[in-house]
Simulated assay, not measured.
Amino acid sequence: MNDVVLYEIDNAIAKITLNRPNKLNAMNAKLVEELGRRVREAAEDDSVKVVLVAGAGRSFSAGFDINDEIEDGTETPRQWRPVLQKDISMTMSIWDCPKPTIAVVQGHCLAGGCEVAMACDLVVASEDAVFGEPEIQYGSGPVTLLMPFILNQRKTRELLFTGDSIDAQSALEAGLVNRVVAASDLDAAAKDLALRIAPTPLEVLRLTKQTLNRAYEAMGLRHAVNSNLEIGSLINGANTPEQQEFDAIASEKGLKAALAWRNERYDSQATS
């Protein structure tokens, strides 16, 4: 069986790759655990100065694997809290990594996948990348509330209330990504950026990352993330009729059918 997360080191650059390409790198429990472990490994390795986070195949990540939650029967706020806590811990391990991190994004970068990218210090995206947090359309909410600290208030509220996605150029204009390049140039562009950073002494990189993170945390980032865990557990455990219908369709007909039902609800409103 293939590893769900790949790890390699080359010239002081660690590359961590989400490796469920047939599932658009949807993050199941095993991938969440392995991703967090590899991030910690890179953080503790003094030969590593920069960390790349990438996705195998045609997408970076479509988010957390909904099938996990449906199969586990997760419903109540009490049941949701430990699930969300594990997901948040993984995302924040990237935020807390003492070395610069660069998300290398192509295709879908949605929901929890978008949060992983936002937890990175820098984002290089291909022209076909699509960003968004569509959780509200599932009757859910962002797991790790990072977007208010990355984008301006108006754009954050628009994206989180609607669940809409934006293309790579719009993400660049909004400040969500640093660079947009052709798909064929993505890996080279990310590596070039990492090599621009790598000559800096490791201790200087660590201290610079620390002071930047402290600036955001002084603005309340970590408090917001922790508060969102409690509220998110309530949202996911609200068990609204729409949530029940989505789960029922997914259980009986599969996730693809449930997503089609959800999309029809929102598309019909947009065109009415």
Rank of each mutant, 00 (worst) to 15 (best):
I16D: 13
I16L: 12
I16P: 07
N19Q: 07
R20G: 03
R20I: 01
R20H: 08
P21S: 15
P21Q: 15
P21K: 15
P21C: 15
N22H: 13
N22F: 11
K23M: 09
K23E: 10
K23Y: 11
K23C: 11
L24P: 00
L24D: 07
N25G: 08
N25K: 06
A26F: 12
A26I: 05
M27T: 12
M27L: 14
N28P: 03
N28L: 08
A29E: 09
K30F: 06
K30C: 01
L31P: 00
L31R: 04
V32M: 02
V32P: 00
V32S: 01
V32D: 00
E33S: 10
E33Y: 02
E33Q: 05
E34I: 04
L35C: 08
G36V: 11
G36W: 13
R38C: 04
R38L: 04
R38E: 06
R38H: 15
V39P: 00
R40T: 08
R40P: 01
R40K: 14
E41N: 01
E41Y: 00
E41I: 01
A42S: 11
A42V: 03
A42D: 04
A42P: 13
A42K: 01
A43H: 08
A43Y: 11
A43I: 08
D45Y: 02
D45E: 05
D45H: 01
D46A: 09
D46W: 13
S47D: 10
V48F: 12
K49T: 04
K49H: 15
V50R: 02
V50C: 09
V50Q: 03
V51C: 10
L52D: 12
V53S: 05
V53W: 01
V53E: 07
A54P: 00
A54E: 02
G55Y: 00
G55D: 10
A56G: 11
G57D: 04
S59P: 00
S59W: 00
S59I: 02
S59Y: 01
F60Q: 03
F60I: 04
A62M: 03
G63N: 12
G63D: 11
D65R: 14
D65H: 14
I66P: 07
I66G: 06
I66N: 11
D68N: 11
D68H: 12
D68T: 15
D68V: 14
